[in-house]
């Protein structure tokens, strides 16, 4: 059994659109098989969701008490 790689964290809490999407796309390019990207963002990024669905990624959205959303992204085929 191999250890899972830690997620690549994209902290977009203080970034203006479309920088969160630009950074997330860069992180997805770097992501290793089985690895995840964790995006922290103060809104639900609809354009990113559209792009993820169209490019074979799965994601989960977890609202946090401070109003930030934690969005965990992985390859859909890995599910």
């Amino acid at each position: 059994m191999t250890d899972r790689l830690p997620p690549i964290v994209v902290d977009a809490r203080r970034l203006l659109p479309p920088e969160p999407m630009e950074r997330t796309l860069e992180a997805l390019d770097e992501m290793q098989p089985g690895q995840e990207v964790l995006l922290m963002i103060p809104r639900q990024p609809a354009p990113l969701f559209d792009m993820l669905r169209n490019n074979g990624y799965a994601y989960t959205v977890e609202p946090q008490p401070d109003g930030v959303f934690h969005i965990t992204i992985r390859q859909a085929s890995g599910d």
Partner: peptide, 15 residues
């Protein structure tokens, strides 16, 4: 325009 280019162009210029 950035959103329109994103899926169509590789290396879209930063907004």
């Amino acid at each position: 325009l950035w959103l329109y280019l994103q899926p169509r162009v590789r290396g879209v210029p930063p907004m």
